[in-house]
């Protein structure tokens, strides 16, 4: 009973944000268009990388981690799915992986860190 009532609120508050976001899974390469506020100006920054994990799926606290190599340094960035700062999210490439959390990517670089494409 109480779970149902919470679902009503969560669905209602997340509807707009979820419609913008295509379905993606760990291993996929995505491009996140993220709004950044500088003073009172707003600009959009793109961040492209591999989805390492999706946490708390289905709740309002859902977030995903995107890993990329930026000028030789590995960067992992966590985005809340429902954040109003996510302007757009593009699915670039679907990846074939066998687990939900791709922590093994942390120990690999270059050729070893490739992920097969899911066709």
């Amino acid at each position: 009973m109480s779970e149902q009532l919470i679902n009503i609120v969560e669905e209602e508050s997340s509807k707009i944000a979820r419609e913008k976001i295509p379905a993606f899974a760990p291993g996929d390469t995505i491009n996140v268009h993220y709004k950044i506020k500088e003073g009172n100006k707003e600009r959009i920054q793109q961040y492209q990388g591999v989805v390492m994990q999706i946490k708390n799926k289905g709740t309002n606290g859902e977030s995903f981690t995107v890993r990329k190599i930026a000028s030789g340094v590995a960067v992992e960035r966590i985005f809340p799915v429902l954040s109003p700062f996510i302007d757009k999210l593009e699915l670039i490439r679907r990846g074939k992986v066998r687990r939900a959390r791709l922590y093994f990517l942390r120990g690999r670089k270059g050729k070893a860190a490739r992920i097969k494409e899911k066709l």
Partner: peptide, 21 residues
């Protein structure tokens, strides 16, 4: 008291909230 959840406000902050019937 029904339970808790969180919503985002206009500033992009996640606010912990309690739902009350």
């Amino acid at each position: 008291k029904v339970g808790m959840t969180s919503i985002f406000n206009a500033d992009g902050k996640s606010i912990a909230c309690t739902l009350i019937e």
